[in-house]
Structures are given as structure tokens and as C-alpha cells.
Simulated assay, not measured.
Amino acid sequence: MELSDLVTPLKRQTLSANVYDQLRDLVMSGQMMPGEQISLRSAAAALGVSVMPVREAMQRLVAEQALELTPSRTLRVPRMTAAQFKEITVIRTNLEGLATEAAAAAVGTVALREIAERHDAFVAEMKAASPNGSRLVTFNKEFHFAVYAAADMPMLLQMIEALWLRIGPILNYDLRAGSRRVGEKTGVVHHAALLAALKRRDGAKARAALEGDIRSAAEFILSAGVLVAEGVSRPPSPGGRDQSVGS
């Protein structure tokens, strides 16, 4: 999918912040895949801005390790080793589990309605004859973060966002690839259990459902052979030759 289909042209007064926010969200939600190259000029054109604010946003994302600058001066989404993925998965299970359990105790009527709406959108897309991978990853992220926001723990939410910046591009590989987990609607089952537990204010069951969701997706990704093996040089990115950072 073209970048222009995923972003919204920006107004001048919110330029700097919105460029960063939109690009950051694309990485976190998994709209950009590991190894995918990014052209500054293409991104600027899609956003309807000059190259300068895009370059500044990219520099921030490189500093946060959401993007990387290769020796050939190409910007791309980093690939991840199996060891890195396993470590982040363990941390996610603990932090996101904590947020989910806290959300069960703190969630209000409005937040619960929002979480349910995100769940319904995810379910509807899953039931489509040909589920759209881009929409699935968006709805999945929105559902998870609606839950974590309901915990009302801003510092914890920031930590979770930082983890998703690192793992987002590979996190939703199963959804984008149309794996058996999409056919079996595995994510729907876990999300439904989580929502039901939140409605009952059952923190332990909500946490268990969240942890089951994380682990089942992680098991598939580890078995799919899409992570970089330890001690193996990273293969060239798909899509041909590198694009210059200035392109």
C-alpha cells in the first residue's frame, strides 16, 4: 500500500507535531514492515509538506530506534532478531498485562464503550470475505491502546508505546500476511474474552486474555521464520535497491 493512502495531508500550524505523530503511528500499528525503506521525498509528498519537517520527524524516530539509518544512508524500518523479539514479548506481557488489570478496576462507562466499539470494528473486518490487512492492524492497535489508556497510568502507557515502536512492524505480521490466525479469528477470541472480563471488572481474567493474545501471536511469528537469526547478517530489504535518504 502506498504511503499516501495511509497518511493525512497536514495543516501548517500543526506541521511539526503531526508529521512525527503520523509517522510514529504507522510504525507502531504495523503499517510499515521490517526492512521497508522510506523515502523522505515520497513521505513529504504524501503528507503535503516540505522535506524538512519529515527529516526532523525521521531523526526523532531514529533516536527512538523505531527507524534506522543504514551505512548507505538509507532510512528503513529495522529488522528484529528472534532474541530481541522474545525479550520484548516478555516485557510486553508484564507491562501490558499490568495495564489491562488496572484498566479492569478503573475503566468507566465511556472508556468501556470506546473499547467495545474498537472490538466491533476489528470483528467486522475479520468477518469480511477478504479482510483488509491494513485495517486489521489499525483496529487491533486501537483496541489495545483503548484498554491501556483506560488504566489511567500515563507513565505506563508511555512505556508500552515505546515497546510498540520497536515491535510494531513485526507484531501484526500475522494480520497483514493473512495467516491461519486470521482464518481462525484467534485475535477475536482473545479480544472478546478481554472485553467480557473488563465488563465484569475481573482484572485477573482480563490480564489472562491479554497475555494469551500476546503469546499466541508471538508463537506464530517465531514459527514463521520472519525474524533475523542470531549471527546471520541481515538480508537485503525487499523491493530492490536502496533509496537515498534525500530521495
Rank of each mutant, 00 (worst) to 15 (best):
S4A: 12
L6H: 01
V7D: 08
P9D: 04
A17G: 09
N18V: 04
V19C: 06
Y20T: 10
R24Q: 05
L26C: 10
V27P: 01
S29G: 12
M33H: 05
R41T: 07
S42Y: 05
A43Y: 01
A45V: 04
L47K: 02
L47Q: 02
L47C: 03
L47R: 02
V49F: 03
P53T: 11
Q59Y: 08
R60V: 15
E64K: 15
R73D: 12
T74I: 02
L75T: 14
P78A: 01
R79L: 12
M80S: 03
T81S: 15
A83R: 14
K86W: 08
E87C: 07
E87W: 06
T89R: 08
I91H: 10
N94E: 15
N94Y: 15
L98A: 07
A99F: 13
E101F: 01
E101I: 02
A103S: 12
V107D: 00
G108D: 14
V110G: 09
L112E: 01
I115Q: 00
I115S: 00
E125Y: 03
A128V: 08
A128I: 08
G133L: 03
R135F: 15
L136A: 04
L136V: 15
F139P: 01
N140T: 09
H144F: 13
F145Y: 06
V147G: 04
D152H: 13
L156M: 13
L157F: 10
L157P: 04
I160Q: 03
E161A: 15
A162P: 10
L165S: 12
L165T: 10
P169W: 03
Y173R: 12
L175K: 00
L175C: 05
S179Q: 08
S179A: 10
R180Y: 10
V182A: 13
V182S: 09
E184R: 09
V188P: 04
V189H: 05
H190W: 14
A193L: 09
L194R: 00
L194K: 01
L198V: 05
L198G: 01
K199Y: 06
K199H: 07
K199S: 07
K199G: 06
R201K: 11
R201I: 07
D202Q: 04
A204N: 10
R207K: 11
L210I: 13
L210C: 14
I214H: 02
R215Q: 08
R215P: 00
A217S: 11
A217W: 00
A217M: 08
E219C: 08
F220V: 09
F220C: 03
L222D: 03
A224C: 13
G225V: 14
G225M: 14
P238A: 10
G239L: 05
G240Y: 13
S244W: 06
G246W: 15
S247M: 10
